[in-house]
């Protein structure tokens, strides 16, 4: 007799294979058309969730290609998460290698990753032990918003998802929630801004982070760099990407910064 686990595996294949197999249907009793109705119901719910989560990616690809990508994901990977919202991210992870090679739509992969990141950040939990920050102190330790997630892009897909122009250098997209708000926000940095962001989130102080970036670029601090950095930092605090500073560690001043202007990419 067929075991319960075998029946459940057959049923799962019926729902997720590109085409249901007669051998699997034969394991189940009753009219096959009734079991195939379950296949339609299961797939319909999942397709709807993924279309909702990636509306621009779906529109860019068109329904035929987008639905084919979902079918491939279901057949080759299948949902490995109990949270139905996360199938959106699983689809992107599965389809990305192919989408990244799409020469006709060179920004497709950036767009899909951006939409998937927004979807993920929108569901993030604000920690119950939220970090406490004092007002911004350049000598203080940066306190990063715990919901900030980032990705690197070659196209400004947050501005123009249909046909964005290629950027000069990889830009950093930051996606986050703000305290007390359920909206998801996006902030984009040029390459130098991205370097500062990385340095700040890993450094003992904003000043130390700035020094690291200057050293890495073998530059001396000049007015352009300082102005750009000040603007970026003010923006990031205003946007709640950095929530401020923790109590200042015993550290020396950054000294006069140097290089070219880091900045947001608006």
């Amino acid at each position: 007799m067929t075991s319960l686990a075998e029946v459940q595996r057959a049923f799962t294949r019926i729902c997720f294979d590109h085409e249901p197999q007669a051998a699997d249907l034969a394991l189940l009793h009753d009219d096959a058309s009734r079991w195939l109705m379950y296949r339609r119901m299961v797939r319909s719910r999942l397709f709807k969730m993924m279309r909702n989560g990636l509306p621009k990616t779906a529109a860019l690809l068109g329904p035929t290609r987008f639905d084919a990508a979902i079918s491939d994901y279901l057949a080759e990977h299948a949902p490995q998460t109990r949270f139905i919202r996360e199938v959106v991210n699983e689809l992107v992870d599965h389809a990305l290698p192919g989408w990244a090679q799409d020469e006709a739509l060179p920004h497709l992969a950036d767009l899909a990753r951006y939409e998937a990141l927004k979807w993920r950040v929108g569901a993030l939990e604000w920690p119950t032990t939220a970090p406490v920050a004092d007002e911004l102190d350049f000598e203080g330790r940066p306190v990063l918003n715990p919901t900030v997630r980032d990705l690197t892009v070659r196209f400004r897909v947050d501005k123009d998802w249909r046909s964005p122009s290629r950027l000069d250098g990889a830009h950093r997209v930051l996606v986050h929630q703000k305290p007390g708000s359920n909206r998801v926000y996006t902030y984009v940095l040029n390459p130098m801004g991205g370097q500062l962001f990385d340095a700040w989130r890993e450094s003992e102080s904003f000043a130390e982070g700035a020094r690291h970036v200057l050293a890495a670029n073998e530059r001396a601090p000049d007015a352009r760099f300082i102005d750009g950095m000040a603007g970026v930092l003010a923006d990031m605090v205003e946007q709640s990407i950095f929530l401020g500073s923790a109590r200042a560690p015993a550290s020396q001043s950054a000294g006069p910064p140097d290089p070219s202007a880091p900045g947001p990419d608006r």
Binding site: Q8, T12, C15, M41, R45, P79, Q80, T81, R82
Partner: peptide, 25 residues
């Protein structure tokens, strides 16, 4: 009901065979 197996999730409610094995499980 069952909703998946081996770490795969169907995100739907699928009927169990009305058997003693189902009951034990």
């Amino acid at each position: 009901c069952f909703g998946g197996i081996d770490g795969t999730y169907l995100h739907d409610l699928l009927p169990l065979p009305f058997t003693k094995e189902s009951v034990r499980n």
